[in-house]
Simulated assay, not measured.
Amino acid sequence: MNNYINRIEILIISSTLDFTTDYVCLELEKRGHSYLRINRDEFSNYNIQFDINELKLLVEIDDNKYLFDESSLLAIYYRAPIYLRDIYQPNLQMEEQLFRTQWTAFIRNLSIFEDVTWLNNPVATFRAENKLLQLKYAEKLGFLCPKTIVSNTNDLNLVPESTYIVKSLDTALLRTEDKEAFVYSSKVRGSEILEANLKVSPVVIQDYISPKIDIRVTVIGNKVYAAKIVQNNQGIDGDWRLLKEGLSYISITLPDDIKYKCIALVKKLDLAFGGIDLIKSIDEYYFIEINPTGEWAWLVDTAGLKIYEGICDYLVGELDYGM
């Protein structure tokens, strides 16, 4: 057995199918930084010992040993979900339920490493995923936000002829028979909401902003990457994610005040990373939401945004946090 212990600078928590993480791993290798990627779907293949008193984490994989402690560990890149929304599916065996819940709790508890750089700390991510808190902070920072109501009743002061956006309060992954269904944002008339039965669960109702151009902003520390999402160089009516073809992602430069507000919002939420959805309508920018675990790999090839470089800069201490 190999008794040599590798001291690692960067711990990456991901999954085997998370190709986004591949960009970061390749960039760290290119720069010569030591890292270990552990995949949450392979935890049963690892031997893990965590000495809480000495704050030392030992991970053994295929007879190779890796040590993490606060004297050598620079950063933790956390690419794992905070909410597990499918734990109680009827087809999950008890062993699988235990695997998912307890390993997820173990990963969350790595926040005991308080003096290392996190991207993002799971405690901060849990709080930041609250959409209403996001809107509160965004408005305080000076963002324009669409008028928003959360309700499970149609006894609302809506204009029947006007258009609204209805979306879930949290990511809604549903199961119908043997298929999974994802709930997208829906563009509806006020009359449809007023006639609907909303008793089952609360929904988010927002004024529909038109005309619009969707913008995805990725913030890492004080670095901002932005791309507009268009079809035939025009804004998209409704939720652009429903369109599978014909979309263009074009790198843009945001006005300085909008850029600084994006950085400030990420910092206000105690995050280092955030994927922010904005809407530009004529000359105004509206905040829609922020995703602390947002995807970004699709912007590397489509818009030429080298977001992985900014992530690696932050992990190795070459990028500041905030303004």
Rank of each mutant, 00 (worst) to 15 (best):
P211V: 15
Q206F: 01
L247H: 02
I215N: 08
V203L: 08
A226N: 05
D277P: 07
D256P: 06
Q234N: 15
I229E: 03
G238F: 02
D277R: 00
K267N: 13
D237G: 00
V266F: 11
V200E: 13
F273T: 12
R216P: 07
A226P: 00
L242A: 09
V217Y: 03
R216Q: 10
A272S: 12
L254T: 09
I213W: 01
V217R: 01
I236P: 10
V203D: 03
N232D: 15
G235C: 11
Y225E: 07
I250E: 12
K268Q: 11
A196D: 10
I236V: 14
P255K: 13
K228L: 00
K212M: 05
I252T: 10
Y225T: 00
K223M: 11
L265P: 01
R241W: 06
T253I: 12
I263Y: 01
L243A: 07
I252E: 02
K244W: 02
I229L: 13
A196I: 10
G274W: 05
G221F: 10
N233P: 11
A264I: 09
V203Y: 09
I215F: 11
C262Q: 04
Y208M: 06
G274K: 14
V230R: 10
I193Y: 02
G235H: 11
I236C: 06
V203K: 09
L198H: 14
L247Q: 07
I215M: 06
C262N: 06
N222R: 05
N232S: 14
A196Q: 02
I215W: 14
T253D: 07
D239E: 00
I205G: 03
I205E: 08
I205W: 12
L194I: 15
N222Q: 05
I193A: 06
N197P: 11
L243E: 01
I220S: 07
I258A: 08
D207F: 00
N233S: 15
S251W: 00
A272T: 11
A196Y: 07
L198A: 12
G235W: 07
L247V: 09
K261L: 03
T253K: 11
Y208P: 01
D257Q: 08
A196T: 12
D257C: 06
N197M: 13
I205F: 06
V204Y: 04
V204L: 15
I215Q: 04
G238R: 05
K259C: 12
D207K: 05
V224Y: 00
K244N: 14
K228G: 00
E195Y: 05
I213C: 03
I276V: 13
L242E: 07
T218S: 09
I193N: 06
K259L: 07
G275V: 15
G275E: 08
S251A: 15
D239S: 01
L198M: 14
P255W: 10
N197K: 15
D214H: 13
T253A: 05
K223H: 10
K244I: 03
I229F: 10
P211L: 11
